[in-house]
């Protein structure tokens, strides 16, 4: 029986990531000046105040109602990955520049890294985990496989969501519309032509 601790891919990356971060921060970066204290005796607010600690949040994830707590500073992507274990949406740039974390909020694609968790209060969120039904890949997912529309796969979950939003919006489509729809999804492997072919095949009714 080996007493070497079991290392999962995820925990290894987590450890390597923080070690790299610490090494890279040898020169201390100045922290922003703390905000001045706020008056605790302020008049009552017309509206509601959440946080700064965890605050209740309800929304629907891939059709399933969720009731949980999150701090206002939590992004939707952090909530999905850390609290709901929905790790299909990928954290890459964390600045809305790459599209790997794209999810649908009430059907509209948006970067979940630039969305606060509390922004989806009462709304419906669809992630890549919500595309398959009953363990059957969706037509779009099957088309991605058949058209070899992914290589490393890091952009795929976001790419799929942008493409699914296009297909939901309009049945028939053309290459220009697909290219426009995925203009925010960066693929460093260069699979774009195959992504376009995959989406067009679904739009035409094939898979």
């Amino acid at each position: 029986m080996s007493d070497i601790p079991r290392i999962s891919r995820r925990s290894l990356f987590r450890g390597v990531g923080s070690a790299t971060l610490v090494a890279g921060c040898a020169a201390k970066t100045p922290t922003p000046a703390p905000a001045p204290g706020l008056d605790p005796a302020a008049p009552p607010l017309a509206g509601t105040a959440l946080g700064p600690g965890p605050a209740p949040l309800r929304f629907t994830l891939n059709g399933a109602p969720q009731t949980l707590e999150a701090a206002p500073s939590t992004t939707l992507l952090e909530l999905l990955r850390h609290q709901l274990d929905a790790t299909g949406s990928k954290l890459v740039c964390d600045r809305g520049a790459c599209g790997a974390c794209t999810v649908l909020v009430d059907g509209a694609p948006q970067p979940s890294c630039m969305t606060l968790a509390h922004d989806v209060e009462g709304r419906g969120v669809t992630t890549v985990e919500g595309l398959a039904t009953n363990n059957q890949l969706s037509p779009l997912q099957r088309a991605f496989i058949e058209h070899d529309a992914l290589q490393c796969g890091y952009c795929s979950s976001g790419m799929l969501m942008s493409c699914q939003a296009l297909l939901n919006r309009r049945g028939a489509t053309d290459a220009a519309a697909v290219e426009h729809a995925i203009a925010g999804n960066l693929c460093r492997c260069g699979t774009y032509p195959n992504v376009v072919a995959a989406v067009l095949s679904v739009a035409k009714g094939g898979a």
């Binding site: 905000a35 706020l38 509601t48 959440l50 946080g51 700064p52 701090a71 206002p72 500073s73």
Partner: peptide
């Protein structure tokens, strides 16, 4: 991100008053 409170005012005046008191914070 540093922790912050998220305020959801229902009136324009409430929103403006809130910021006016502490425009930097």
């Amino acid at each position: 991100m540093q922790p912050f409170a998220l305020i959801r005012p229902t009136t324009l005046l409430a929103a403006r008053d809130r910021v006016h008191e502490h425009p930097r914070a």
